[in-house]
Amino acid sequence: MRAEAVEAVVQGLKQAGVDFISLLPDSDFSELQRRVGDDRGFAYVPVSSEAIGVGVCAGAWLGGKKPALLVPTSGFLVAVWPLTSLCMAWGLPLLLLIPYRGDIGDAFWLMGPYKDTTEPLLSVLHIPYVVVLNNLAVGWIEGNTVFRERGRRGHGDLATAAFRVQKTIERQSKGVARCLQESTIVSPSSNFFKKRDITTRLPDL
């Protein structure tokens, strides 16, 4: 993650009033995680399971904090049970930041399933989300928190906002290059796209 992207996310979290952060270390977020851990403006709780992280954040919110959970696409699956039984059932707000592993351009085969699971599960759990492709993160995190505070209605109570913070354009390009070489083994979803389709998506990234 580029330094200015890390800075953008941190500033976004601060402007949004987030003062409590839980996380389990993840490679695509490690710089951000270090930065958050070193910042005295955030209460910082590293956990060994993202499921514990959801519980910790839920408690922090009940105690008056504004929590955020930095969770990878894999950890999002680990967290499904507490996101359901705590956040969904009780209507507890929680901001999730998810680096989107498994998207087109990610050449590690084990990440493939997350393209299939992440967005469908966010929908199933009624967690609204927005995709962040560059360092516009500041405004989007802020805007979403406003939405979260307003969103006290029915299932909108959840108002759990999630972001996929994309890897940098440089890393994406690199990943796509590998993906083109290995497109038959990357994942079912990338198999679905013809090579030229991946190429034509590049400018959008």
Binding site: L77, V80, W81, S85, L110, G112, P113, L121
Partner: peptide, 17 residues
Amino acid sequence: DSGFLVATWPLASLTVS
């Protein structure tokens, strides 16, 4: 059902993958 939610991660990353 509750256990199914707990098992989501290994079901996806081990058995489906």
